[in-house]
Design a protein around this nucleic acid. Structure first.
Lengths: 344, 344
DNA sequence: TGTTAGCACTCATTGCTTTCGAGTGCTAAA
DNA sequence: TTTAGCACTCGAAAGCAATGAGTGCTAACA
């Protein structure tokens, strides 16, 4: 077990290294305000901390840097709550000051703000819209082969895609189908659409439309949701300013990974609620071995529907980033939930 | 004026440097197949070419590299038409093989393909939709304060945004407004909407809706087009593999510029028709001083509506990139125009 | 007169030393 | 238990010679 003094020293070293990016030596550490031990004492303690795996040396005669275990212990036990500055809070609240009408838009802007405030890169997932409810369906024929299907949800989200138009359906059929869908499906959560179609709509279609098979297929296609994996990035370029990524190969691996939306989504998708911190190898991905990712879920009407996260070097300003993410994820959840419950 | 031999040598040097990224020396050049001059002769000619500004030396005893003027001359006078490979052509055509129903989607995918085929970064602008015609307007109230406005164009493009709902308009007013708009504005090109509203719609509104002033403002807001500057990027990460950008600061400047959509749009917006090649300083932007940009407009029903472009180092594979861009811009124009004219 | 061989020269790159200094571990004294 | 002292380590920076690909120039050659 670590003594109080060891904890204090570990904390001091991590704090120092986070800001300097330079290995911390005993001499400098002892000069730090608040530290009243001599270099020699510190050396002894630092050697012990290294033996226990909390610190490491880049080479045998250099200062110490925190190991991943060191960061982990710092994050788990030594973190002082960080006071956000006025400006930080204002910048975040400015997001919600305007009329919040579209969830996805706000979420995208969150990514931007977050990367600007942290000068790391941000990743934002979602919001997953399958919980929101269908408000209206529009089918707009474009030519004899294709139509645009538009789904509007109660959260103001609009999805659209083109659907192919079976020859067997004429425009009066389309109108009927649209009417049936709007009548039967308004207020139905998106994830239940498929069931509802099979159980209720199919029967009505059979009753009112001639070529039932085509009509059913067309209906299914019309109500297809866009792929769920919405991944937005902000401030990737910020990473280029970090000294640990001055090597182009390293940053290339990171950037290549950040283009794989699917992998990123898997990595960050909202499984557990609340804040997650992954340090270095904990990310289980070679490209991220020198990165830490801090992420938090945000929720919509009480259910987690997305994630906001920050990618930076393992030497990350944990206290501040955690403060920002916690604050923003809360604000975001409130804003989205307001948006949701205010609907008629 | 350059002699034939000088032209030949210039071409050989540019070709060589483009592929090796190493300064070209007389000795190696003379060993090149097809070159039958001795190193000494080449040295004389190279010195002359340098005096005339077509070549330069990184330092006094190194081989030559093309100057910007050298690239310019190469591009203007020495370019051999490049035969695209089967695979390249296939990859591009695969874009249009499927059902092409939405212009913007195809255009985005063009950016991806282009960056994959070239291993440079691609920039794609547009398509500017203001020429397309309004097909239908939908106004869907979300709550007492806001509604979603949806515009569908004859090209299958769907725009949507939220609009605030004046208290003075009730749902029957909204229905009336939507009816008037659809009746009067179908088939009207988007850029004429404003005029049409003022000239024709305003009168009808006054006639049918009580609070005329609110209604007019609401209508204007409803038909607001999204901002015209659509800029898509592909394969930025490719640039990290180029030896000229192994310096993080250089690449950071480029990436920062590539985040300024507005500047990029200004730089590439379709002014003149056809192919444009900007080499190094011709881009008039410090971040691009080591980059060349090759771009071509694509058109929609005969009018240029967008641009596809490639950003790479000045040492770019000009012949191949030009071949690809020309081919793709033509295909794209045809595909879009087909899409357009096939509409009912 | 245009081409080429020869040669001295240049300069980035590489590898090797040296120096410097911040840092360490260890021992012994306080 | 803490600290002063000291020898030691090792990366970074500086200096230096060797290497070699390249040049410009001159003189010989066809």
């Amino acid at each position: 077990m670590l003594t109080d003094r060891q904890l204090f020293i570990l904390q001091a070293i991590v704090d120092d290294y986070i800001h300097s990016a330079e290995p911390v030596g005993s001499r400098n550490l002892s000069k730090r305000r608040g530290v009243s031990y001599s270099p020699a004492t510190l050396r002894n303690e630092m050697a012990d901390l290294e033996d226990m795996g909390y610190l490491e040396k880049p080479h045998s005669s250099s200062g110490r840097i925190p190991s991943e275990q060191g960061y982990r212990h710092y994050v788990d036990h030594l973190l002082l709550p960080h006071r956000l500055s006025k400006k930080e809070i204002q910048d975040m609240q400015a997001l919600f000051a305007g009329r919040v009408t579209e969830a996805e838009e706000v979420v995208k802007q969150s990514a931007t703000i977050l990367s600007e405030l942290t000068s790391y890169a941000s990743i934002v997932l979602g919001p997953e819209i399958f919980q929101s409810k269908l408000k209206q369906v529009q089918i707009i024929p474009l030519n004899e082969n294709a139509a645009v299907a538009i789904l509007v949800t109660d959260t103001g989200h609009v999805e659209n895609h083109t659907v192919s138009l079976p020859k067997s359906l004429n425009s009066s059929d389309l109108e009927k189908i649209a009417n049936i869908l709007n009548e039967r499906l308004e207020g139905v959560p998106l994830y239940q659409l498929h069931n509802k179609i099979m159980n209720e709509v199919a029967g009505l279609l059979k009753q009112h439309v001639n070529s039932f098979h085509d009509a059913l297929e067309f209906t299914e296609e019309t109500l297809q949701k866009s792929k769920q994996e919405k991944v937005f990035y902000g401030g990737k370029t910020n990473l280029l300013s970090q000294p640990e990524f001055k090597d182009v190969d390293k940053i290339r691996m990171i950037f290549e990974l950040l283009e794989e939306d699917h992998t990123i989504h898997e990595l960050l998708k909202p499984n557990q609620r609340g804040l997650t911190i992954r340090i270095g190898q904990e990310n289980a991905n070679e490209a991220f071995e020198d990165c830490s990712i801090i992420s938090a879920t945000y929720s919509f009407n009480g259910n987690p529907v997305g994630t906001i996260g920050i990618v930076g070097p393992t030497r990350m300003e944990y206290p501040r980033v955690i403060g920002l993410i916690e604050h923003l994820s809360k604000d975001l959840s409130i804003a989205l939930t307001n948006l949701y419950t205010k609907r008629s």
